[in-house]
Nucleic acid binder design. Structure first.
Lengths: 204, 204
DNA sequence: CAATCAAATGACTCCTCAGTCATTTTATGG
DNA sequence: CCATAAAATGACTGAGGAGTCATTTGATTG
């Protein structure tokens, strides 16, 4: 009974998972991991709690799945837009733009993203699983920087340091915008951030 | 019975508070707010749980007190060292140095700091009390930047944006160093960060 | 030393919530 | 239409932990 390589069962199952993850994102974004309850998620998804445990094995499992899903999408978009840009400066601008735009349209995910990646220091709670996800993210950017160093487009520098530096700047602006602390439009913030990243405060 | 304006009672009370806060810092840093128990803190302080409630009204109260204490000290040191430096560039370098040095010797506090200020987006949980503390921090730096703009030392720019930008960069490096992800010495990181902040990636 | 007061204690209560599972509902296909 | 299997349900359980308070310990003073 498989159509296009997927049974009906699989399709329904995927749909349920997506439903649950979508509800979970909203709830986790609003309450944070600790204060969110599985009942909250069930209510938001309009299903019974027991059903959730047919698709996920624990509260943490749901959380991790929601985080991974968003992270994969964000990372893929970032990768594609950077690959499409020519020259390191354009690539960095693409990095900034893609991520700020994604943040604007995926606020719930970004809240979860920040609550995890703003706080990687609490290793005890998560056995480093989030640290690994973070490092994987940084790796992509690091590779791009390294290539530019190799071609001589960038001078030799500690690319690992620079990669984190860039991540943190963009992460900070995402948060500013999410909290509506930024006084500028997104275009202005993209421009200003790109300038600061490239030229620093001294050359403005 | 007051000696130097303080009764014995007050001295003992302050000592107990300090004891509890010190234990709390360690526990919160290790387990995070949600996973830390008041029993953990009591055990770490070598006192009974009931005693803690003679000095603090709730778990959150302890947390907030520990955070505020560290924050006040960090902020004061930052303010003093910046005031002692001449010129905006030296002030910024002082900012970076003071904070990285403080992070090196107050790791427990910095863990707590990051778990809060990495995640300000979860406003529901804390009624914005942490957001206020953060904004107060940023204000000091913003004032320094504004003064430099007024004297013409810096060109006109969105000082609020720049202040966050600087905070986030330093915060990021603090985290890198805390997790021992940084491959450089502290001096190297101070130097590199100051350079990047001032000149950006393009001018290295 | 006895009486009084303050400080400390930890067993206890109460509540929340993750995860379970016997029961009910819905889908399948003969 | 019935039999059987699969999916969904939500009342229930057990664990864990915040905050309380009757009791104990220790200090103070006449």
């Amino acid at each position: 009974m498989a159509i296009a390589g997927r049974t009906k069962q699989e399709v329904v199952s995927e749909y349920r998972c997506a439903e649950i993850l979508s509800a979970a994102r909203t709830v986790f974004a609003t309450k944070g991991f600790a204060d969110a309850t599985v009942d909250d998620i069930a209510a938001a998804a309009g299903i019974a709690k027991g059903t959730i445990y047919l698709y996920f094995s624990s509260k943490r499992d749901i959380y991790l799945a929601a985080l991974k899903q968003g992270l994969t999408e964000l990372q893929e978009r970032t990768r594609v837009s950077m690959a499409a840009a020519t020259g390191i400066r354009a690539k960095l601008r693409a990095f900034v733009r893609t991520r700020l735009e994604y943040a604007e349209t995926n606020r719930d995910f970004i809240r979860i993203y920040h609550s995890e990646f703003g706080n990687l220091t609490n290793a005890a709670a998560c056995h480093g699983e989030f640290q690994q996800l973070y490092l994987k993210q940084a790796k992509t950017l690091e590779t791009v920087l390294q290539n530019s160093v190799t071609t001589g487009e960038l001078p030799s520098l500690r690319v690992d340091f620079a990669a984190f530096f860039i991540y943190d700047m963009v992460k900070g602006v995402m948060m500013q915008r999410l909290l509506e602390w930024s006084t500028g439009t997104m275009e202005e913030d993209i421009e200003l951030l790109s300038q600061l990243m490239w030229k620093g405060l001294g050359a403005l």
